[in-house]
Protein backbone atom coordinates (compact mmCIF):
# COMPACT_ATOMS: atom_id res chain seq x y z
CA UNK A 1 0.00 0.00 0.00
CA UNK A 2 2.76 2.45 0.97
CA UNK A 3 4.78 1.59 -2.10
CA UNK A 4 1.81 2.44 -4.31
CA UNK A 5 1.28 5.63 -2.31
CA UNK A 6 4.90 6.65 -2.84
CA UNK A 7 4.72 5.97 -6.59
CA UNK A 8 1.53 8.01 -7.01
CA UNK A 9 2.70 10.88 -4.82
CA UNK A 10 6.04 11.16 -6.63
CA UNK A 11 4.32 10.95 -10.01
CA UNK A 12 1.92 13.79 -9.10
CA UNK A 13 4.67 15.95 -7.67
CA UNK A 14 6.84 15.35 -10.75
CA UNK A 15 3.95 16.43 -12.98
CA UNK A 16 3.56 19.54 -10.83
CA UNK A 17 7.29 20.32 -11.06
CA UNK A 18 7.06 20.15 -14.83
CA UNK A 19 3.71 21.85 -15.38
CA UNK A 20 3.78 24.31 -12.43
CA UNK A 21 -0.01 24.65 -12.40
CA UNK A 22 -0.26 24.99 -8.63
CA UNK A 23 2.62 27.41 -8.48
CA UNK A 24 1.67 29.52 -11.50
CA UNK A 25 -2.12 29.51 -11.12
CA UNK A 26 -3.26 28.62 -7.63
CA UNK A 27 -0.62 30.69 -5.82
CA UNK A 28 -1.58 33.89 -7.69
CA UNK A 29 -5.22 33.01 -6.95
CA UNK A 30 -4.37 32.99 -3.23
CA UNK A 31 -2.74 36.40 -3.60
CA UNK A 32 -5.83 37.75 -5.37
CA UNK A 33 -8.06 36.53 -2.54
CA UNK A 34 -5.87 38.24 0.03
CA UNK A 35 -6.16 41.52 -1.85
CA UNK A 36 -9.91 41.13 -2.32
CA UNK A 37 -10.43 40.59 1.41
CA UNK A 38 -8.58 43.84 2.02
CA UNK A 39 -11.07 45.57 -0.32
CA UNK A 40 -14.03 43.96 1.43
CA UNK A 41 -12.91 45.22 4.85
CA UNK A 42 -11.56 48.50 3.49
CA UNK A 43 -13.24 50.67 6.13
CA UNK A 44 -11.90 48.73 9.08
CA UNK A 45 -8.12 48.10 8.90
CA UNK A 46 -7.91 46.88 12.51
CA UNK A 47 -10.84 44.53 11.87
CA UNK A 48 -8.82 42.88 9.12
CA UNK A 49 -6.11 42.02 11.60
CA UNK A 50 -8.61 40.54 14.03
CA UNK A 51 -10.33 38.29 11.49
CA UNK A 52 -7.07 37.08 9.97
CA UNK A 53 -7.45 33.48 11.27
CA UNK A 54 -10.84 33.12 9.56
CA UNK A 55 -9.55 34.61 6.33
CA UNK A 56 -6.55 32.29 6.42
CA UNK A 57 -8.78 29.23 6.68
CA UNK A 58 -11.26 30.35 4.04
CA UNK A 59 -8.40 30.99 1.62
CA UNK A 60 -6.92 27.58 2.46
CA UNK A 61 -10.28 25.96 1.78
CA UNK A 62 -10.67 27.61 -1.63
CA UNK A 63 -7.10 26.86 -2.62
CA UNK A 64 -7.37 23.22 -1.59
CA UNK A 65 -10.51 22.88 -3.69
CA UNK A 66 -8.59 24.03 -6.75
CA UNK A 67 -5.62 21.82 -5.90
CA UNK A 68 -7.93 18.81 -5.49
CA UNK A 69 -9.60 19.44 -8.81
CA UNK A 70 -6.21 19.72 -10.44
CA UNK A 71 -5.08 16.49 -8.82
CA UNK A 72 -7.85 14.49 -10.46
CA UNK A 73 -7.97 16.35 -13.74
CA UNK A 74 -4.50 14.83 -14.20
CA UNK A 75 -6.16 11.42 -14.30
CA UNK A 76 -9.02 12.44 -16.56
CA UNK A 77 -6.88 12.70 -19.69
CA UNK A 78 -6.44 9.65 -21.93
CA UNK A 79 -8.29 7.47 -19.44
CA UNK A 80 -5.38 7.62 -17.02
CA UNK A 81 -7.68 6.72 -14.13
CA UNK A 82 -8.65 3.43 -15.79
CA UNK A 83 -4.96 2.71 -16.27
CA UNK A 84 -4.33 3.27 -12.56
CA UNK A 85 -6.96 0.65 -11.77
CA UNK A 86 -5.63 -1.75 -14.40
CA UNK A 87 -2.12 -1.56 -12.96
CA UNK A 88 -3.54 -3.37 -9.97
CA UNK A 89 -2.41 -0.70 -7.51
CA UNK A 90 -3.99 -0.89 -4.09
CA UNK A 91 -6.84 1.69 -4.02
CA UNK A 92 -5.83 2.70 -0.48
CA UNK A 93 -2.34 3.35 -1.84
CA UNK A 94 -3.71 5.52 -4.64
CA UNK A 95 -5.77 7.43 -2.08
CA UNK A 96 -2.82 8.08 0.24
CA UNK A 97 -0.50 8.94 -2.64
CA UNK A 98 -2.92 11.50 -4.07
CA UNK A 99 -3.46 12.89 -0.58
CA UNK A 100 0.27 13.24 0.10
CA UNK A 101 0.96 15.01 -3.17
CA UNK A 102 -1.80 17.58 -2.62
CA UNK A 103 -0.73 17.95 1.02
CA UNK A 104 2.82 18.86 -0.03
CA UNK A 105 1.47 21.37 -2.57
CA UNK A 106 -0.88 22.85 0.00
CA UNK A 107 1.86 23.09 2.64
CA UNK A 108 3.94 25.19 0.27
CA UNK A 109 0.92 27.30 -0.69
CA UNK A 110 0.08 27.89 2.96
CA UNK A 111 3.61 29.02 3.71
CA UNK A 112 3.19 31.73 1.10
CA UNK A 113 -0.29 32.45 2.46
CA UNK A 114 1.10 32.92 5.97
CA UNK A 115 3.77 35.25 4.61
CA UNK A 116 1.02 37.14 2.80
CA UNK A 117 -1.08 37.73 5.91
CA UNK A 118 1.99 38.83 7.85
CA UNK A 119 2.92 41.39 5.20
CA UNK A 120 -0.54 42.52 4.05
CA UNK A 121 -2.63 42.24 7.22
CA UNK A 122 0.16 42.83 9.78
CA UNK A 123 -0.74 39.58 11.53
CA UNK A 124 1.54 38.56 14.40
CA UNK A 125 2.33 34.88 14.03
CA UNK A 126 4.62 34.33 17.00
CA UNK A 127 3.50 30.84 18.01
CA UNK A 128 4.64 29.52 14.67
CA UNK A 129 5.12 25.80 15.54
CA UNK A 130 1.62 25.57 17.07
CA UNK A 131 0.06 27.46 14.18
CA UNK A 132 1.87 25.32 11.62
CA UNK A 133 0.80 22.12 13.37
CA UNK A 134 -2.90 23.03 13.47
CA UNK A 135 -2.71 24.25 9.87
CA UNK A 136 -1.18 20.96 8.77
CA UNK A 137 -3.72 18.80 10.64
CA UNK A 138 -6.63 20.94 9.45
CA UNK A 139 -5.46 20.77 5.84
CA UNK A 140 -5.01 17.03 6.16
CA UNK A 141 -8.64 16.79 7.30
CA UNK A 142 -9.90 18.88 4.37
CA UNK A 143 -7.91 16.82 1.89
CA UNK A 144 -8.88 13.48 3.46
CA UNK A 145 -12.51 14.14 2.52
CA UNK A 146 -11.61 16.18 -0.52
CA UNK A 147 -9.67 13.43 -2.29
CA UNK A 148 -12.66 11.10 -1.96
CA UNK A 149 -15.15 13.67 -3.25
CA UNK A 150 -12.82 14.83 -5.98
CA UNK A 151 -12.37 11.26 -7.23
CA UNK A 152 -16.15 10.83 -7.24
CA UNK A 153 -16.88 13.94 -9.24
CA UNK A 154 -13.84 14.29 -11.50
CA UNK A 155 -15.31 12.32 -14.39
CA UNK A 156 -18.66 14.10 -14.39
CA UNK A 157 -19.57 17.09 -16.48
CA UNK A 158 -20.72 19.06 -13.44
CA UNK A 159 -17.52 18.63 -11.43
CA UNK A 160 -16.86 22.34 -10.89
CA UNK A 161 -20.21 22.88 -9.24
CA UNK A 162 -20.74 19.60 -7.42
CA UNK A 163 -17.37 19.43 -5.63
CA UNK A 164 -17.83 22.67 -3.65
CA UNK A 165 -21.44 21.77 -2.78
CA UNK A 166 -20.28 18.39 -1.43
CA UNK A 167 -17.05 19.46 0.23
CA UNK A 168 -17.80 22.80 1.87
CA UNK A 169 -20.55 21.69 4.28
CA UNK A 170 -18.58 18.60 5.31
CA UNK A 171 -15.41 20.54 6.13
CA UNK A 172 -17.29 23.30 7.97
CA UNK A 173 -16.01 21.94 11.33
CA UNK A 174 -12.43 22.29 10.07
CA UNK A 175 -13.03 25.92 9.18
CA UNK A 176 -14.58 26.54 12.60
CA UNK A 177 -12.00 24.63 14.66
CA UNK A 178 -9.07 25.88 12.60
CA UNK A 179 -10.17 29.48 13.02
CA UNK A 180 -10.71 29.05 16.77
CA UNK A 181 -7.40 27.23 17.22
CA UNK A 182 -5.55 29.96 15.35
CA UNK A 183 -7.31 32.70 17.34
CA UNK A 184 -6.25 31.05 20.60
CA UNK A 185 -2.73 30.40 19.42
CA UNK A 186 -2.25 33.95 18.13
CA UNK A 187 -3.54 35.27 21.46
CA UNK A 188 -1.01 32.98 23.15
CA UNK A 189 -3.86 31.39 25.12
CA UNK A 190 -3.60 27.77 24.19
CA UNK A 191 -1.02 25.30 23.03
CA UNK A 192 -1.58 21.84 21.64
CA UNK A 193 -3.91 20.89 24.50
CA UNK A 194 -6.54 23.16 22.95
CA UNK A 195 -9.81 21.24 22.39
CA UNK A 196 -10.14 22.87 18.97
CA UNK A 197 -6.85 21.28 17.91
CA UNK A 198 -8.21 18.02 19.31
CA UNK A 199 -11.26 18.38 17.08
CA UNK A 200 -9.03 19.00 14.06
CA UNK A 201 -7.09 15.81 14.84
CA UNK A 202 -10.31 13.82 15.33
CA UNK A 203 -11.66 15.07 12.00
CA UNK A 204 -8.47 14.20 10.13
CA UNK A 205 -8.19 10.72 11.67
CA UNK A 206 -11.87 9.85 11.13
CA UNK A 207 -11.86 10.81 7.47
CA UNK A 208 -8.43 9.34 6.75
CA UNK A 209 -9.74 6.01 8.03
CA UNK A 210 -12.99 6.25 6.08
CA UNK A 211 -11.21 7.39 2.92
CA UNK A 212 -8.66 4.56 3.07
CA UNK A 213 -11.42 1.99 3.58
CA UNK A 214 -13.82 3.20 0.93
CA UNK A 215 -11.58 4.43 -1.87
CA UNK A 216 -11.85 1.07 -3.61
CA UNK A 217 -15.61 1.53 -3.94
CA UNK A 218 -15.16 5.08 -5.17
CA UNK A 219 -12.59 4.21 -7.81
CA UNK A 220 -13.90 1.05 -9.43
CA UNK A 221 -16.29 1.67 -12.27
Amino acid sequence: MFKAAKVIALKDLRIELRSRVVFNQILPFVAVILILFAFAFDKYPTFLERVTPGLYWITTLFASMLALQRSFSLEAENGAKDALILYGLDPAGIYIGKLLAVLVEMAILEMFLALGIVFLYSAHLQELPDLAFSALVGTLGILAVGVTFSAMTSASKAKETVLPLLLLPVVAPVLLSGTKAWENEIAGKAGLGDPWVGLLILFAVAFLALGTLTFGSVLEE
Binding site: T148, S156, L166, F207, E220
Partner: peptide, 28 residues
Protein backbone atom coordinates in the same frame (compact mmCIF):
# COMPACT_ATOMS: atom_id res chain seq x y z
CA UNK B 1 -24.96 17.91 -1.83
CA UNK B 2 -25.73 14.21 -1.51
CA UNK B 3 -28.78 14.59 -3.74
CA UNK B 4 -26.76 16.65 -6.24
CA UNK B 5 -24.14 13.89 -6.36
CA UNK B 6 -26.87 11.38 -7.20
CA UNK B 7 -27.76 13.43 -10.26
CA UNK B 8 -24.27 13.56 -11.80
CA UNK B 9 -23.32 9.91 -12.24
CA UNK B 10 -24.82 8.14 -15.21
CA UNK B 11 -23.82 4.60 -14.42
CA UNK B 12 -26.24 3.08 -11.93
CA UNK B 13 -23.79 0.97 -9.95
CA UNK B 14 -21.23 3.73 -9.83
CA UNK B 15 -23.83 6.15 -8.57
CA UNK B 16 -24.96 3.73 -5.89
CA UNK B 17 -21.43 3.17 -4.57
CA UNK B 18 -20.44 6.79 -4.64
CA UNK B 19 -23.57 8.09 -3.00
CA UNK B 20 -23.29 5.39 -0.33
CA UNK B 21 -19.77 6.61 0.50
CA UNK B 22 -21.01 10.22 0.51
CA UNK B 23 -23.82 9.24 2.89
CA UNK B 24 -21.29 7.63 5.25
CA UNK B 25 -19.13 10.75 5.14
CA UNK B 26 -22.17 12.83 6.06
CA UNK B 27 -23.06 10.40 8.85
CA UNK B 28 -19.60 10.67 10.43
Amino acid sequence: GYLALRRVSEDREQRAKRSAVAALIAFI
